[in-house]
């Protein structure tokens, strides 16, 4: 092999290594190591807790989404919010802060908008006495369906599309079904779209983090 040919080979290797470095660093930059699956499980547990507290003391056959204790839902939802942000604040202090990306901001904004809208609507409708249980379930189902659907489109995540469909089904049953039917479908939606999906999300996130670990030395 001539000297020129060897130099050419080395030069090509060096240039290729540079291109590979660029690609790998861009991929590293896009990689998210945050995990959000736990928030779905947390809120699923919160909805179930709210239903249980609201119906405490009543026979199971008489259970409904709202139950007999009117403060059960507001107290449970506010407590869960405090718990969630408290945990995020604690965990956020450890390790380097994840950089902002446009996609991350879009997803966060959607969930924040949904949360604020739900709070405003339910507080106002509840205080005015114009809210009934059917509408309650239908609005929750519609809002969660919308947000999950939009998120699944942005993230190109089919599993989340499934959760949107589940919530939309609950919204429809909330409008047409009896109170008992609405409660059963609501509980099923919580289980599938929050608990099961949340656990699936946590497992997927752990697998992704385990696959990509350690710093890339430049």
């Amino acid at each position: 092999m001539s000297v020129d040919h060897e130099m050419n080979d080395l030069a090509r290797q060096e240039l290729t290594a540079r291109l590979n470095l660029i690609e790998s660093m861009i991929a590293e930059g896009r990689q998210k190591t945050e995990s959000w699956g736990w928030t779905f499980v947390l809120w699923g547990a919160a909805y179930i807790a709210a239903i249980v507290f609201a119906n405490l003391g009543a026979p199971v056959a008489e259970w409904s989404t709202w139950g007999h204790h009117t403060l059960a839902w507001p107290i449970t939802m506010i407590s869960t919010l405090v718990l969630m942000f408290g945990y995020i604040g604690l965990v956020g202090d450890k390790g380097p802060k994840q950089p902002e990306t446009t996609m991350g901001r879009a997803i966060f904004s959607m969930w924040l908008a949904m949360g604020v809208s739900m709070m405003i609507f339910f507080v106002a409708a509840g205080a005015s006495g114009r809210l009934d249980e059917h509408i309650y379930i239908a609005v929750i189902g519609a809002m969660l369906g919308t947000t999950n659907f939009a998120s699944s489109m942005i993230l190109k995540w089919r599993a989340q599309l499934f959760t949107a469909l589940v919530w939309w089904t609950a919204a429809v049953v909330g409008c047409f079904g009896s109170l008992t039917q609405s409660l059963i479908v609501f509980l099923a939606a919580i289980f599938l779209a929050q608990i099961v999906f949340g656990v699936y999300g946590m497992i997927s996130e752990r697998k992704t983090m385990a696959r990509k670990s350690g710093a890339v030395h430049a």
Binding site: G95, P96, A215
Partner: peptide, 18 residues
């Protein structure tokens, strides 16, 4: 290359990645 993939990044994050 790292900064091209994000809007902004902390020094500590860049250190962890490189």
């Amino acid at each position: 290359s790292l900064l091209s993939a994000v809007e902004e990044a902390e020094f500590t994050w860049l250190r962890a990645k490189t």
